[in-house]
């Protein structure tokens, strides 16, 4: 091997060149990305003001039941006796019988406070995210029942499956520090 093969030399030179090029390409991409990178982590959340309560949350999520749940902001609630989030719009009787409730899984507990006020509380372990109560409350009431993604359940898919079919385009990534988009504080 006293005389190096010119073809070998050419080959190794080309290999080194392409390696250098790929290294600098990777560096360039990293630099470009870093220029608009965020330090905080982003998580999916629903903007309740954009949400139109279409009910897709219940079926589209990769989890069963859905990670999208109904939350109740008591400070916004009117404590109505005829709660349109609890009863259907044409209730036959105003008692807590399962057949009279809007919630298909009985996740809303109604408690008498004082005449004529009732407290409504959501058991999120039962909630399936169908948004019927939120629709009733937002359409005819104060909008104190609204949908949010339960951050303890959400697996934070790279592409949220609900966001793809969300009819109100209410899904977006928010910084992890503000992982819930609250209605109360937004409206104040």
């Amino acid at each position: 091997m006293s005389k190096p093969d010119p073809a070998e030399g050419r080959r190794s030179f080309l290999e080194k060149m392409t390696k250098g090029v790929s290294f600098f390409a990777l560096g360039g991409v990293t630099g470009k990305l870093l220029s608009n990178a965020l330090r905080e982590e982003m998580v999916w959340q629903i903007d309740p003001l954009k949400c139109i309560q279409c009910g897709n949350c219940a079926t589209a999520c990769v989890l069963t039941p859905s990670a999208s749940k109904c939350y109740h902001d008591f400070s916004m609630c009117g404590y109505c006796r005829v709660c349109t989030g609890f009863f259907p719009t044409d209730p036959t009787t105003l008692d807590e019988g399962a057949e009279n409730q809007l919630c298909p899984v009985g996740a809303i507990q109604r408690k008498f406070v004082e005449e004529p006020y009732y407290e409504y509380e959501i058991d999120r372990t039962l909630c399936i995210g169908c948004a019927r109560c939120a629709k009733g409350c937002t359409s005819y009431g104060n909008g104190s029942l609204y949908m949010q993604i339960d951050r303890t359940l959400c697996v934070n898919c790279n592409q949220c499956a609900i966001a793809l079919v969300c009819e109100g385009k209410a899904f977006s990534r928010v910084p992890v520090e503000q992982q819930y988009v609250l209605k109360g504080s937004r409206m104040s």
Binding site: E41, V43, Y71, H72, D73, F74, S75, M76, C77, G78, Y79, C80, V113, E114, Y117, E119, E121, T138, Y140, G141, N142, G143, Q148, D150, R151, T152, C154, V176, E177, Q179, Y180, L182, M187
Partner: peptide, 29 residues
């Protein structure tokens, strides 16, 4: 929204806070 004013309770009822559970560990990524 906010069609009905918040009620004035006479029995000393206090509104419970809404519990938003935070994600497991914020630095997980």
């Amino acid at each position: 929204e906010r069609r009905f004013p918040p009620p004035d309770f006479e029995t000393g009822y206090t509104q419970p806070p809404v519990v938003f559970q935070e994600v497991r560990t914020p630095v997980s990524q």
